[in-house]
Structures are given as C-alpha cells and as structure tokens.
Design a binder for these strands. Structure first.
Lengths: 187, 187
DNA sequence: TACGATACGGGGGACCACCCCATTTCTGCA
DNA sequence: TGCAGAAATGGGGTGGTCCCCCGTATCGTA
C-alpha cells in the first residue's frame, strides 16, 4: 500500500469516527470525506460500501470486546462470566453511536464481520456455561448476540442503564414464581 | 376537510402502504407521491414528517392489536394471555415491513403514537399477570414493548419464527437450573 | 533523475426531501 | 343556479446525498 494511500485511509477512518459518534451510522459520507480533506471518490475507493467503513471504524472496539471474552474464560463462575460479557457488549453498543446499527445491518453473507467476530469470541463463554449446567443447552451465541443487539438498538434513546436493565430482564425471564436467589446479588 | 383533500389523503396512504411493504420504512416519499398520482408538495402538506405518514399507514394494524389485547383480558390464564399477545405483536412487527422501524424511531415526545397505543393496550394484561403473581412486579409494559420491538427489529432478516423463538427465550430467561414446567406446554 | 504504476479529486448524473407560489378546484351562500 | 373566496394543488427550484468517470498529480523504484 502506498504511503499516501495509507495516510488518507487513516484520515478517513478518524474523520468517520467523529462523524459517526456525532450523527450515527448513517452520517453523510460526503461530509466525512470533506472533513478528512479528501475527495469523495477517494473515500469510495477505500471503502466501497458503508459497512466496510463502519467495520474499519469499529474494528478496534470489537477486537477489544473479543479479547475481554477471552479474559473472562478464566473467571470462576461460568454463568457470571457470560452475563458480565453480554452486559459489557450491550453497554458498549448502546453507548457507542452507530455500533448497534452497524452490527445489525451488516450484510449477513460476509464472514469477517464485526458480528461474526463477537459471536465467535463469545462462543467459548456460552459453551462453558452450558457444560456447567447453568444455561439451557438449546441456546446459541448467535441468538444471544441478536438479543443483545436488539436491546441495544431499541433502548438507545433511553440510555445504557435502560439497556442493561432490559438485558438482565431478558436473561432472567419475566416469571416470578421461581426467582433465582442470585437476582439480588447485582444490586 | 374538503372532499378532494380526503381523496388524496387516502390515495397517498394506499400508495404508501404498498411502497413501504416493498421497500421498508424508508421508502422514497417522492415515489409514493408519484404512484399516488399527486405532487410531492401535497404529500408533504398532508404528512409533514415521515413518521406521521407511517402512523397513518400502520394505525389500523395497531388498533387491531390493541383490540386483541382487550379480547385477551377475558382469557383464563393471565400469564398465557400476556405472552400470547406479545407473541402476536412480535410476529406482526417482524412480518410487516417497516412497522418495527416505525415503532422504534417515532419521536418519543408525541403522545398519540403507535407505540404509546400498544403500551396502553397491553398494560391491563400485564397488571393482571402481576396481580395473579405469575409475573415480577417490577416489570413495566413499556419495557416489554421495547424488548419485543428490539427483537422484531434485530431478527427481521431471519424471519418471524426466529423472532418468536427469541421472544420466548427472553420471557423465560436463559437459566436451566429451574426451568418452568410450562416450558414444554407450547411445543 | 526519469519512468510506470498508483492514487487522487473535480465534476457530473441520478436521486432525494422539502418548500414557494401561481393556478386550479371546491363549497357555502345568495 | 351562479359566484366569490377560501382551500388545496403541483410544477419547478434549492440544496443535499451517493456514486462514478477520467484527466492529472504523486509516489516508489530502477
């Protein structure tokens, strides 16, 4: 890759991060190019689709979350590790403007997407919890990611606290007949 | 309202229904006006915002769902009635293109929105289930609607079956230690 | 230094939301 | 019935978007 191309690539990603943080995942590409100081054609050459740009912007966050999942594999309680990670993902997706849209609307065909990375990273956490017997075996990580994502997206206007509350609700269920004793542990 | 204005109003809503069913909630307003046979200015005069148009399009469905909630108040099992209704809402929102977006992105300030109507309609169902003791009392109908909506939105690409599965999951929780005996009732 | 490959960006086409205002259409009243 | 004025209409303009073509400038190498 030529030096100037690399330079422009970085300029675009930086400008896109700011614009997306301000305006969401559908920020104007034209304006991103403008504020990066490059022509719009350059932006489209580096990132043929909007999602390729979003992927570049959020790749770092996603890798961090994936690494965090690896760390949590060492935690003593498997169920706790899983729920903790899901909460962190949800909080991040709710707080970071554009991330939830980005994860949800990325084309499902692609294999190297942010969503796929997170699912792969969370899979061991889920498997461990299932093996331990604390999570139903018919649940898949993909299901949980869709759930977390949907909650992030739908609760975005209400803020991260609401999103986390709803995630807790979804993980515990709505029933009252047999509330787990661990319910009150968190707060 | 003048007769021709009413006529155009209806033409626009009809055309919008088709366009939104085909292209989603962000269908081109220009094309809706074109296929309705009116000028785009007429569309904008009748519906100043995109959400006002969506509200007109989906008002009927929403009223049906609200009425259905009223009917279910007569069902014997309160928890069953609540979950049945939530499933119907989710199925409808997942199947009907644009409805989920419409419910989620409508401005929260307005009072007469589709979302508020559904929340109000579901409230008695929830209250009955809480009074019966089968649902935790700290849950609000607004929370459940956000949950159902988020699931509809996130699972849309996978189809209504996936959405309903995820709703079941969210209502029951992920735990396996104390699975309700009613789990196997549905299927 | 000179050359070929590579990247750049101005500008244009197609589309969109939204608005102004001259014109047409309707309706209540005589 | 006929008419005046209110009400609704829609063509066309503005400013914005995405996306792409292609002549030009820049880079890396020999």
């Amino acid at each position: 890759m030529r030096a100037d191309a690399q330079r422009n690539y970085d300029l675009i990603v930086t400008a896109a991060s700011e614009a997306i943080a301000r305006d969401g995942a559908y920020a104007s590409l034209e304006e991103i190019a403008r504020s990066a100081g490059v022509g719009s054609a350059t932006l489209h050459r580096h990132f043929p689709t909007r999602w390729s740009l979003l992927q570049a912007v959020f790749g770092g966050c996603v890798r961090n979350l994936a690494a965090r999942a690896g760390d949590l594999l060492a935690a003593p309680d498997a169920l706790d590790a899983l729920t903790t990670w899901l909460h962190e993902v949800t909080a991040y997706a709710t707080t970071t403007r554009g991330l939830a849209d980005s994860l949800l609307n990325e084309p499902a065909q692609e294999s190297d997407t942010c969503g796929a990375t997170l699912v792969a990273a969370g899979e061991p956490l889920l498997r461990r919890a299932v093996d331990e017997g604390s999570v139903r075996p018919d649940i898949t990580m993909a299901d949980l990611m869709i759930l977390a994502n949907g909650i992030s997206l739908a609760a975005q206007p209400m803020g991260a606290a609401k999103a986390e509350q709803l995630l807790t609700l979804a993980l515990q269920g709505i029933g009252s007949a047999d509330r787990r004793e661990s319910v009150d542990k968190g707060s």
